[in-house]
Design a binder for these strands. Sequence first.
DNA 1: GAGAACACGTAACAGCGTTACGCCGTCCGA
DNA 2: TCGGACGGCGTAACGCTGTTACGTGTTCTC
Lengths: 201, 201
Amino acid sequence: MTAPLSRAIDVPTDTRSAILSAALSILQKHGAGAMTMRSVASAAGCSTTGVYTYFGGKAGLVEAIFIDGFQNFGETIHAARRASPADQPLAGLAEAYRAWALSNPTQYMVMFGRAVPDYVPSTDARDVATSTFDDLVASTRLTMATLDLVGDPIEIAHHLWAGIHGYVSLELAGMDMANDDAERTKRFRLGVVKLLRGCMR
Amino acid sequence: MTAPLSRAIDVPTDTRSAILSAALSILQKHGAGAMTMRSVASAAGCSTTGVYTYFGGKAGLVEAIFIDGFQNFGETIHAARRASPADQPLAGLAEAYRAWALSNPTQYMVMFGRAVPDYVPSTDARDVATSTFDDLVASTRLTMATLDLVGDPIEIAHHLWAGIHGYVSLELAGMDMANDDAERTKRFRLGVVKLLRGCMR
DNA sequence: GAGAACACGTAACAGCGTTACGCCGTCCGA
DNA sequence: TCGGACGGCGTAACGCTGTTACGTGTTCTC
């Protein structure tokens, strides 16, 4: 009898989400190396075995982070598309992409860069990941006529994705040749324009 | 008195290179998670403390792998540039870039993707990394007139680097949308063409 | 030949992911 | 109302990790 009667019925998977948000918080603040089972359990207010009951192990926890990341990332991308002019959704999408990655650098590297050794996304997880791609394809289709893009929209979307991801991940790795953030931003925006120009007739 | 007199004088840093190549071999065959101090020492035929005498710790070992990787990578890029037609060095460079990354996927992710948690490249290491970029800039300068590229060569080289890296790292992460290697290769080559076209007048 | 410097191994430390085991509250059939 | 099965959860332990204190043997210098 630990909980008062008035709230005897708790939200069922409350501890599960507490564990997940604790893991995300540690990942964001202290990096992938600090996200241990013990630190996550401690931050979530349960024992290490609690993490096992809900996620099966560290791989399951990382998988949840991976999927959660792509869902959150996908929603951000989607919202950016809706907020952009109907015939020009790509610039806003690219900005939102970069902003999300810079705000969640470690999670981005878990999602795209194998930041947790020995974790390989399951096919289910990869399906969630690639479904995010659909928004990019949709935005590309909307822009084809306006920007005079030619070719397969899927191939063009993949080209844009690869280019944007390249800029962002070089920036996260500290290997862009920029001197300050202003130059980085300017270069990124020019890069997106160049990516689009490469697909024009 | 363990070694015979005839070879009492060994090559001084022989064990150092033995450790480094053992680490690279484990990294390539079994991934970053399997590259432990004990497994490296065992494969190199020494004790764990031997790794500490030569590299100071795991961070030093990873740094050596990082630098070794960029030197090897840089030589490959450089050789590809020399083997290409003098006025068309970029296509061969891109092919060599991708081939090296696909042959050394884990090391590539250590170099570009923070595959070892808690390892952050020193400024010296990053200098070695960015000096590889010089070859790309040089190749870009050679191609500017032939391909009718306009703008700052450094900015164009950065654009090409980001794009090529984007294609390669999505491929390594298993997140390209290709069905087989033939399609992947075709898409990559078309992508390089698009990257160049985006920088034309 | 004495002594410092160095490479190197043994053994231990704390911390890691994981799991066997036991406790305790809840539910279900008799 | 009771007895037993069940499930969530913590304690404690397993083997593994990176790291380091310490002792030993070799080598180089004066």
